[in-house]
């Protein structure tokens, strides 16, 4: 009897999966078919659209795993971004200084000219 209950539990588990899978596939199909004018108004439309995007991402993931692609290391990408930001800030500061220097030179030249007069 105990074995029967266990099998019944597994059957219920499998049924939940099957039902969820059917619901998921239906949502993906509805989301993929969304066109202007055909989208059902309301929150369900968003869930369907999101499901379709997740399904597309899943296919991309499958393809990249099959091709043996490896994700770039997160820390390296983060470091590059930080470096880019820092280089930009330094460059921006240099730009400001160059423009200020130009204005300063112009004012000094004008002052010297008026002094000569």
């Amino acid at each position: 009897m105990a074995e029967d209950q266990f099998i019944r539990f597994l059957a219920a588990w499998a049924l939940v999966h099957e039902t969820a899978d059917e619901g998921w596939k239906a949502a993906v199909a509805r989301g993929a078919g969304q066109e202007t004018g055909s989208m059902g108004a309301g929150p369900e439309a968003f869930v369907d659209g999101l499901s379709a995007m997740v399904a597309e991402e899943k296919e991309r993931l499958k393809a990249s795993l099959a091709a043996g692609e490896v994700e770039p290391a997160g820390s390296k990408a983060g470091l590059e971004s930080k470096l880019d930001d820092l280089l930009f800030e330094v460059g921006e500061l240099r730009g400001r200084l160059e423009s200020m220097q130009t204005t300063l030179d112009a004012v000094l030249a004008e002052a010297a000219e008026s002094g000569e007069k």
């Binding site: 880019d84 930001d85 930009f88 460059g91 921006e92 240099r94 730009g95 400001r96 160059e98 423009s99 220097q101 130009t102």
Partner: peptide, 23 residues
């Protein structure tokens, strides 16, 4: 300049480079 920095990884977007020594 900030816009150019924000879109530095986008090959389809550009803004003119600024010559700050001439500004």
């Amino acid at each position: 300049d900030r816009f150019a920095h924000d879109f530095r990884d986008d090959p389809f977007v550009m803004t003119p480079r600024i010559a700050w020594t001439h500004c």
